[in-house]
Amino acid sequence: MEINRIKQLNEQADLIRKMSIECIANFGSGHIGGTSSIIETLTCLYYECANIDPTQPNWADRDRIVLSKGHAAVGLYSTLAAKGYFHKSELLTLNQNGTNLPSHCDMLKVTGVDFTAGSLGQGISAAVGMAIAAKMDRKKYRVYTIVGDGESQEGQVWEAVMLAGSRKLNNLTVFVDNNGMQIDGMCDDICKVAPFEPKYKAFGFKVVTVDGHDVEAICNAIEESKKSKKPTAIILNTIKGKGVKCCEGTPASHSVAFTEELFKAENTGGVLNI
């Protein structure tokens, strides 16, 4: 990948991360940890790898992107707003009474959201359904889904993986946000679901492990997945709360209440003009 393109993507990711922090700070609190760990992935998908068109959010042949870990909706909303699916000023209504931007991503309320999530474990099944539909209709679109590592404790995740593997859904790419943490602490201490690589391999997936904050590595992995004869799992080694000064790398980043001082210290530069 060209150095310039890498730089552009990094700058874009940086902006989306700042938008997400401001969006949450404007409401007062929210899931910044799991949001910031997937910003680079969202940026690579929406700015480089996925076949989408913000002017046609319901285009039948678009790639589908399902955020199964729906509590990271702010990251998705910020990316969609940055791409022009809706105006970025709408981000300031996040979670307000009567808003169209609820805390968990909602396909009926938000332009560009391909599936609703929030009850963990369900998005990946819908993604498998979309991938099967594409095969039935002989369509070329791909399906991407982002799943949490904690979320992967839900048995439903593995039911979906099993079906995708046995149907050889090579139009499906599953990202696992391997940030090592969930609400109550470290995933490994609570109910160990890692390692992901051998599990996905055993279910018939091609597996690629990357640094989830390295845009070039993520893009390369996605491009590889497009050529695969099997479904692909991209294991993203990430840092929960990446780039959020007050909580980076701590389980406390899961949901953060931003006071004015805490927000100021983030130095986001008022990208949403707040």
Binding site: G121, G150, E151, E154, C187
Partner: peptide, 24 residues
């Protein structure tokens, strides 16, 4: 995975062998 939301950490600390965090 909602021990922290329910405050049952106190029970875990008092009786660790009778506390099971099943994960999500």
């Amino acid at each position: 995975d909602l021990m922290n939301c329910h405050g049952t950490k106190k029970f875990r600390d008092a009786y660790p062998t009778r506390f099971i965090n099943c994960g999500i």
